[in-house]
Write a protein that binds this DNA or RNA. Structure first.
Length: 727
DNA sequence: AGCACGCCGACT
DNA sequence: GTCGGCGTGCTC
């Protein structure tokens, strides 16, 4: 029966002043309005997209504006999804509307509600030999066929590197009966491999455990060293679920790692696999979202924002590399996809598996305490020895581009025996400082509190924080001296020095300056993949994922900065990074070797990590945090504020402290200048709140938000719950 | 957040 | 005389 009286809907909108606003809706009152999007007017002339999150029974609707349109025929968010988002909004202290819009692919927030664009995928139908015969006279078509045959279904846009006019060629292949086209954003796996290799005892034990606990919420920490076969465990955990027609969500920390895992999965998992990450177009992301929600996709491999993908029948969430900081969003709503994955598992009552070779100390603590099932893989599947790590004291050693003579000799030996070498350092450019020898002046950015990095290729100074360029001063602006010199070493300099020292061997540099496009990335990677001896010089971007089979030696140039960091997690991060880069080495046919150059080889950190291992480092680190009352033994939040004038900013934060008042459970530190006090002309300051109970902290923040609207006054500020970085 | 209203300085 | 600065206030 149609109810002709308007009903009142509560709409969550991305507006900073309210969680929901009420509108009247002249339509059939039905409970399944909840979770559907609407277009509503707000204020003078704003059309906004919001989500209906409740209905009200009242005849008092005359003062309410009407909903302009209901944009969805079916709810875009189901009950569990809304529950997750509501709890996340509450936890991270943001509006429901803001959390909803964070969860929703951008495509769905357009008021015009355009239809989701479709995309044509091509899939090889025929056998390779048959196709080769048929395509003897069509080399371009053969190229396309071979690529799709080897790499699985693709869209024409992904084939542009093979040939121009790829979509035409694909259509011709369909006409010849060699290709099939489909209108969806996933691949439908049928010809999967069933390898007959046996799992190691460790893997089997872990797998049995996951299998036994697959029907209810529980968290397993899959703590497995590099090469211990975590991916195989993921695959075999998923197989029985997929066989029962269920769905799974797999999170990876960054786009670069999706293809790898996706490729392993596509060889082995029967079913429909899709990826979801920021590298896809808005339209594609919307499509994957919709199809996962409809149950048309079985497995989604996604980065952070994919955590919110709706599913019809979700049965498991895997979080790969769970320690990775990329899971914490660093702008907008500062949520942690790993933490929310656990919450989602709880809400859906399904298992969550967190995997890492170097679990976050926080996660390990849950494992030690028995909150998480602690599943360890301590042996490598191929029985190969782990790389040998050795420290090299840099004191009193002459260096060439930051690298000692002994190390260069070792590098040369490895190259001479046909191997490849990775030189890792986390600093791009030629040199991180430009210094005046006479007065000690150091070039700094006008807009930020940061030293300028000298880049030799364009002979300019660059601020790595705001990207502002400066030309090189001929005289010291402070004393007029011409004795300007660079200080410290960056990738550019390492590359040049090594090229000079190693003569004919190629030196291939990977950093944001030398590889800024996927195409360049691929080109550089191809040079390495030839397997010829070469030196790879790279930053952080090389630490993750990529396997170089010929790599036998990793040199870590400078790690000492971490020992002076103010971040209480600095050593944890350093250990994770070192183990990760070391993991790049051991995959060669010979045992890998890692050289860490440092001025502090006697530091307790190295002793613990190298003699006792990561687990022991974690136990010690956690013990210190317990004593100091730091997370995870306390609950932290940071209030971050910025303004053009330092004095105004400080005055405002003092006002906030006043408003916070005394709380026996919450320790307020500040106002502290942020480590980088000025960034892009804005001064930055913060208050650190450290609380011994979560509820108290949240109550306090809630009241603070009520008293001081963060978007109203002249000073902008926001709350970062469970911060992982302090810059 | 947007977008209005509103009250004071330098310009055709 | 106005154009435009950004302070304050409101949005179902």
């Amino acid at each position: 029966m149609i109810n002709t009286a308007p009903c009142i809907v509560q709409v969550a909108l991305k507006v900073p002043f309210a969680n929901t606003l009420d509108y009247q809706l002249l339509a059939e009152t039905s409970p399944d309005l909840i979770g559907r999007r609407v277009r509503v007017p707000l204020g003078k002339s704003q059309w906004l997209v919001g989500v209906i999150i409740g209905l009200k029974n009242s005849s008092d609707y005359h003062h309410l504006k009407p909903v302009d349109a209901v944009l969805d025929e079916q709810p875009l968010f189901n009950k569990n999804n809304l529950k997750l988002i509501k709890q996340a909004a509450n936890y991270y202290q943001v509006n429901l509307g803001e959390m909803l819009m964070t969860a929703l692919p951008a495509w769905f927030s357009k008021p015009s509600n355009p239809p989701i664009p479709q995309e044509i995928w091509y899939k090889a139908l025929s056998d390779k030999q048959i196709a080769e015969k048929k395509l003897k006279k069509a080399p371009k078509q053969w190229l396309i066929f071979e690529y799709i045959y080897d790499n699985g279904p693709q869209i024409p846009a992904a084939l542009s590197h093979l040939s121009a006019g790829a979509s035409t060629l694909c259509r011709q292949l369909v006409d010849k009966g060699l290709f099939e086209q489909s209108n969806r954003s996933f691949i439908d796996n049928q010809n999967i491999e069933h390898p007959d290799f046996a799992l190691t005892d460790d893997q089997q034990r872990v797998l049995n455990h996951i299998h036994e606990h697959r029907h209810h919420f529980n968290v397993s920490l899959l703590d497995g060293i590099t090469g211990s076969g975590k991916t195989e465990v993921y695959i075999r955990s998923l197989l029985p679920l997929l066989a029962n027609g269920k769905q799974a969500l797999v999170l990876v920390p960054e786009i670069g790692l999706t293809p790898q895992l996706f490729r392993s999965f596509s060889k082995r998992l029967p079913g429909r696999l899709a990826v979801f990450h920021s590298g896809l177009s808005d339209g594609t992301r919307a499509r994957v979202w919709q199809q996962a929600g409809n149950g048309h996709v079985d497995v989604v491999v996604a980065t952070r924002s994919g955590l919110f993908t709706p599913f019809k029948n979700l049965a498991m969430i895997l979080v790969d590399e769970e320690h990775d900081l990329s899971y914490k969003q660093q702008d907008g709503v500062r949520y942690s996809a790993r933490d929310l994955a656990v919450l989602r598992g709880k809400i859906e009552n399904i298992p969550v598996v967190l995997g890492s070779a170097t679990p976050a100390f926080e996660s390990l603590r849950h494992a030690f305490d028995g909150h998480y099932h602690w599943l360890t893989l301590r042996n490598r599947t191929n029985q190969k020895a782990l790389p040998k790590i050795q420290l090299q004291n840099l004191d009193n050693r002459k260096t060439y581009g930051g690298i000692s003579r002994v190390t260069i000799d070792t590098i040369e030996q490895q190259l001479d025996t046909g191997h490849q070498v990775l030189v890792f350092l986390n600093r791009r450019g030629w040199s991180p400082k430009l210094l005046c020898h006479d007065c000690g002046w150091i070039a700094e950015c006008d807009d930020c509190d940061a030293y300028l990095t000298y880049h030799k290729h364009n002979n300019r100074l660059l601020c790595h924080h705001c990207c502002r360029h400066y030309s090189l001063p001929e005289f010291c602006p402070n004393c007029g001296s011409q004795e300007m010199d660079t200080l410290g070493v960056g990738t550019e300099q390492v590359e040049t020095a090594l090229q000079q020292e190693l003569g004919d061997y190629p030196v291939i540099r990977f950093d944001r300056d030398s590889v800024s496009t996927p195409r360049q990335w691929q080109q550089q990677l191809d040079r390495v993949r030839t397997g010829k001896p070469c030196v790879i010089v790279g930053t952080q971007m090389l630490a993750k994922g990529h396997d170089f089979p010929k790599l036998s030696l990793v040199v870590v140039v400078n790690v000492d900065n971490s020992f002076y960091s103010t971040d209480f997690r600095a050593e944890e991060y350093l250990a994770q990074l070192l183990i990760q880069v070391a993991g790049r080495a051991g995959r060669a046919e010979t045992a890998g070797q890692v050289i860490i150059q440092t001025h502090q080889p006697k530091h307790a950190f190295f002793h613990t990590l190298l003699q006792q291992g990561y687990e022991q480092l974690a136990r010690k680190g956690l013990e210190q945090r317990r004593e100091m009352q730091f997370p995870p033994f306390s609950h932290m939040a940071i209030i971050r504020a910025q303004h053009r004038y330092e004095d105004k900013l400080e005055a405002f934060l003092l006002e906030l402290i006043e408003a916070i008042g005394q709380d026996p459970d919450v320790n307020v530190m500040g106002p502290l200048p942020a480590p980088m006090q000025k960034k892009q002309k804005l001064h930055r300051m913060q208050l650190i709140l450290n609380a011994n109970n979560r509820r108290g902290l949240h109550q306090l923040l809630k009241q603070l938000l009520k008293k001081h609207n963060p978007t109203a006054g002249p000073v902008r500020w926001f709350i970062d719950i469970d911060p992982v970085s302090f810059d």
